[in-house]
């Protein structure tokens, strides 16, 4: 494929996270290299979503650290993660339902806009110019995802598969360096899955975006990803190329269950 994977852009080191007595993650270390597609798999409740939430600052781990672009942090807030260039989608779609597709995508560009409060309030000068510039950028994303026809539709009215696509669009509108996708294909039919796979590969290829994705569909994971990390009960039990992981005994046991 001629794709060059670079140095690690994200390093999660020894992260432990618990909610009261419930342990979600135990000393998980994990890295993502620049330009790579990295999958996280594991049975339900293994801690996959928790790990994404730690990376983008929704959860603060009790132990361990996360470094993004060599900046090591004990505690990141979602706002800071977004500013650093991390965008994400959610397992259960979290769109702004009352707003149109266009407005949802424009929201993705919040951090790129710089006009001040007064100019905004008066919709004056810089604010106006800025809207037009960002609008052009958003139109590129709309073309890329082939959603031109629903541009002005409120997202609440769209079918599920398209909502997923719009959510990806909102993340892309931020021009992220690292894109976190939490089950981007959950609940989709075959055709929608194929479209989504194509978009993920294209994003990775054309924009050079590094991608971390959680997915349950094994054939998708094996086809898309460069490396796969496997979580079970909050621990990482395997990590490596898709083929290695597929043959790993611990992984097979976790998925199929094992006689004790």
């Amino acid at each position: 494929m001629g794709k060059t994977v670079g140095a690690p852009i994200l390093e999660v080191e020894g992260v432990s996270l618990s909610f009261g007595g419930v342990v979600a993650l135990q000393a998980v270390s994990f890295d993502v290299r620049e330009h790579e597609i990295r999958a996280i798999i594991g049975p339900n409740g293994a801690g996959k979503s928790s790990l994404l939430n730690v990376i983008n600052g929704f959860y603060h781990p009790q132990q361990g650290s996360v470094s993004f672009k060599s900046r090591r942090r004990r505690r990141v807030d979602p706002h800071e993660a977004a500013q650093a260039g991390i965008a994400r989608t959610f397992q259960n779609i979290a769109l702004f339902r009352g707003m149109t597709v266009l407005d949802n995508l424009m929201t993705g560009r919040t951090l790129k806009m710089t006009s001040n409060f007064l100019e905004q309030a008066l919709y004056w000068g810089a604010a106006r110019r800025e809207e037009l510039e960002h609008r052009a950028k958003v139109e590129e994303v709309i073309d890329f995802l082939e959603i031109q026809h629903i541009r002005k539709t409120p997202v609440g009215r769209l079918p599920y598969g398209l909502q997923k696509r719009v959510e990806l669009g909102r993340a892309l509108a931020a021009e992220p360096q690292l894109l976190l996708l939490d089950e981007p294909m959950a609940g989709m039919n075959l055709e929608e899955k194929q479209d989504m796979c194509r978009f993920i590969l294209d994003v990775n290829d054309q924009f050079g975006t590094t991608i971390v994705l959680i997915e349950h569909d094994m054939s998708v994971v094996m086809d898309l990803s460069d490396r796969v990390a496997v979580l079970d009960y909050g621990r990482k039990i395997a990590d490596g190329a898709p083929d290695e992981v597929r043959r790993d005994q611990a992984v097979i046991d976790a998925y199929l269950g094992v006689a004790h």
Partner: peptide, 19 residues
């Protein structure tokens, strides 16, 4: 932008935070 952010917060806190 601010108006959109206001409406965004009204619709979904976590999505607003993520952008």
């Amino acid at each position: 932008r601010i108006g959109r952010a206001l409406r965004a917060v009204a619709d979904s806190h976590k999505a607003a935070l993520s952008v």
